[in-house]
Amino acid sequence: MTQNCDIVISGGGIAGLTAAAAFGSAGFKVICVDPAPPITDGAAEGADLRSTAMLQPARALLERAGLWEALAPHAAPLQIMRIIDAGGEEPEARVIREFDAADISEQPFGWNFPNWLLRREMVARLDSLDTVDFRPGVGTKSVFTRTTGAKVTLSDGTRVSAPLVIAADGRNSPVRQAAGIAVKSRRYGQKAVVFAVTHPIPHENVSTEVHRTGGPFTLVPLPDRDGLPCSAVVWMDDGAQAEARMELDVPAFEEAASRRSCFHFGPLTLVSARQIWPIITQHAERIAGERVALIAEAAHVLPPIGAQGLNMSLADIATLLDLAEARREGLGDADMLEAYHRARHGDITLRVNGIDLLNRASQASAPVLRDARAAGLNALYSAAPVRRMLMQMGLGTR
């Protein structure tokens, strides 16, 4: 027996859950599947300890999806983006520049959330929607498409018929592969160690990137923990060095992290487990195929710089939702998916290339290249129109 719905979403990560909430809230009948049930407790084994900065444009989509009201009490506002160049002989700040959201908006740049908390609130939202059938522990086994619709076979043997399949199933997306869509990848030899810390000096809602070599050391504000200021950290570096740091005992790791942060917020105290992630750039040659739309890491993977990754994913969802609502009778047809590709592909390409350049600059090890990076930061910051334009581009409002 075949089940019917409007949209099958393959993948129940943050992007897939957001898409399910957004399309379900708009009245579409959605089945969302993921082979790995979401972990919604930050203390549970396997919890995603990373954090995500939802930039200004994301709020409108979260409101449409019925998610913002539940998330708002947990938001850590990002009012200032601070960039520190510490590329001199000693690991200490030599150039500090701050990009203030007040220069371009009455709102902060965005709001930071722990990833496990996002999953918790998103799963709760899906539970409240009669239009969404979320099936954790079930994956997509096969996808067969034709001009009139798609047939999806799930890992539990269920068959589903739908006019549109959304691939939110990660960088190795089985749905993308079934659609025959190729990807282009770049590797940097980097890995990122992610963890949370407390520190004695308040972060004052400032997201801070410290550049020296190997990649940025980024501290993103989180709500206070046990009465102390708290930040999520992404420490990018050469893969071998990142692996070695995973083996350090806690005091040695805290000392190394504090030094790499230039003690900007004082000594750092580890308050979470450490996780490690490979750093790559990848983007699909097309983000749509027959009856298939790619979003999130199925469409693009970026180094964690400038909070672009998930916010590009949310832009994918918002664009696809607008097109779906405008042509419900033609949901998933060739015209709709071609319009989706045209609307998103250029922006994705621009941001993929821009983040690639920034990451390569952050890896610089030669003193002359680090000096050039510091000079470039000064030049960009000193020209007020350029500074405002860069902030608007980073938000996706220009």
Rank of each mutant, 00 (worst) to 15 (best):
N353F: 04
L314N: 10
M336K: 03
A334L: 12
D356R: 09
N359H: 13
A296K: 06
E338P: 01
I287G: 00
A284R: 04
Q282A: 10
H300R: 12
W277H: 15
P278R: 01
H283V: 05
A299R: 06
R344K: 08
D347L: 08
I355N: 06
L350I: 13
D322Y: 00
I276M: 14
G306S: 09
I287R: 04
H283E: 09
I317G: 06
M312V: 13
L321F: 05
W277K: 07
A307K: 10
A324S: 14
R327D: 15
I287F: 07
A298P: 00
V292K: 00
G289R: 00
I280L: 14
G330T: 12
E297H: 07
D322P: 07
S313M: 07
L302M: 11
W277L: 12
G332N: 06
V352I: 14
I276L: 13
R342F: 09
E325A: 10
L331D: 05
G309T: 08
L294M: 04
R286F: 04
L323W: 10
E329V: 07
A307G: 10
E329H: 10
A334Q: 13
A307H: 06
A298H: 01
H345C: 10
R342I: 11
P278S: 11
D316M: 07
L350E: 15
R351E: 09
L323G: 04
I348E: 09
R286C: 07
G309H: 09
Q308E: 02
S313V: 07
H345A: 14
I276K: 04
R351N: 14
R327W: 06
N311I: 07
A343Y: 02
N311P: 08
G354S: 13
A324Q: 02
E297C: 02
P278W: 01
V292W: 03
A315E: 13
G346M: 08
L337F: 03
I348R: 12
I305P: 01
A364G: 11
R360S: 01
G346I: 05
H341R: 13
R328I: 05
P304R: 03
E325V: 13
L320W: 01
A339W: 04
I295N: 08
I287L: 11
V301I: 09
G306Q: 07
D335H: 11
T281A: 15
R360F: 00
R327C: 12
Y340D: 06
A361L: 15
H300G: 02
E290M: 12
G346Q: 11
L337C: 10
D335Q: 14
P303E: 02
N311S: 06
G309I: 05
E285F: 00
A298W: 04
I276P: 01
E329T: 14
L357D: 13
A364L: 09
D356Q: 08
T349L: 14
I280C: 03
R291S: 05
G306D: 11
A288I: 11
N353A: 15
L358V: 11
L320K: 03
M312E: 07
A334R: 14
D356W: 02
L358M: 13
I280A: 12
V292T: 04
L357M: 13
W277F: 15
L310C: 05
E285R: 10
M336F: 01
R360P: 01
P278E: 10
L358W: 04
I295C: 02
V292R: 00
L320Y: 01
L302V: 12
A298S: 08
L310E: 03
A318F: 03
A326D: 15
